[in-house]
Design a protein around this nucleic acid. Structure first.
Ligand SMILES: [Mn+2]
Ligand SMILES: [Mn+2]
Ligand SMILES: [Zn+2]
Ligand SMILES: [Zn+2]
Lengths: 154, 154
DNA sequence: TTTTAATTTGCAGCTATTGCTAGCTAACAA
DNA sequence: TTGTTAGCTAGCAATAGCTGCAAATTAAAA
């Protein structure tokens, strides 16, 4: 994570203004490991800066992503998620509550020779889908006979 | 791939009618390995069945997916893709032309111990992003040795 | 046939996002 | 300080990609 003064420098170098909106969003993101949506950041931001525009949220998040200061995560359900963790990692998505959790993987996926030829791969994204701990417990309480397919206990 | 008569049986068992629309879409899908969108199937279907509704395309594709006859593939850009290949495989997405290609992987990704505990994983999706063979060649031919993003200006 | 439940269609409506642009303002110069 | 201005924000229209609804239609059982 970049410090506010480092951020200021990065902005200056790109002829970008260090506006209150940008500073707020940058700090909100870095306090928030939940992979929030633009909309949810908007709600949080609005408390500290009433009147801020949702348009500005999208605008700023897009810029920060272009600058490599954050990652866009699209898990295929609903809105794009924004991730201040720009390190190499992957995601688990709970199909019940839609929470997203960071995931480290042990073995990086490799394409087989068969389809590997001719593609220039820039990035690989792995999405694990299932039910999170909390949602699993809820389900078990409701229907104590049923079981999830696969527990990732390895 | 299921034969038309097998399909008829499956439908009958579920009290689903074997309508011309469903038969058409089923066959179009199985002729089409390009992971088409609903919209593109609509265009193709409209030629053989003018007046077919886009709503029906969505409806039918959704039903077929629920029946396990096809897979929904969401690669995070634009529309959902529909895949008659229901075997276990993954995808490469060209970020230039948005073509999607099937990918077999050599090593299945495993979550690390750290984050593995407590998640019930139903499925794992791997998406490789980059440039396909064709788009790679185009770029090289058009601007040999140049790094310019924008060639539109004269 | 007749009946009837399933299906199709058209259209309204929705979510997430982008396009546009009139004012506003951070930053730099004087 | 003040002025200048490139860059920014807010607001609203517009868009893509669907989904909800209900009237009209139809496959298929009776
Ligand atoms: Mn993350
Ligand atoms: Mn496929
Ligand atoms: Zn959950
Ligand atoms: Zn391509």
């Amino acid at each position: 994570m970049r410090s506010p003064s480092e951020l200021a420098q990065v902005f200056r170098d790109k002829h970008l203004k260090l506006t209150p909106q940008r500073q707020l969003l940058f700090s909100l993101l870095h306090q928030n490991p939940s992979h929030p949506t633009a909309e949810s950041l908007y709600e949080i931001a609005s408390k500290q800066m009433p009147g801020i525009s949702l348009r500005t949220i999208y605008q700023t998040l897009g810029e920060l992503a272009e600058m490599g200061e954050l990652q866009l995560v699209d898990v295929g359900i609903g809105a794009t998620r924004f991730d201040p963790n720009i390190g190499d990692h992957h995601h688990f998505v709970c199909e019940s509550c839609r929470a997203i959790h960071d995931v480290d993987i042990l073995t990086a996926p490799k394409m087989s020779l068969r389809n590997g030829g001719g593609f220039a791969v820039d990035e690989v994204g792995v999405i694990f889908r299932g039910r999170c701990n909390r949602c699993n417990h809820k389900q078990q309480v409701r229907s104590p006979g049923s079981q999830a397919k696969n527990k990732a206990s390895n």
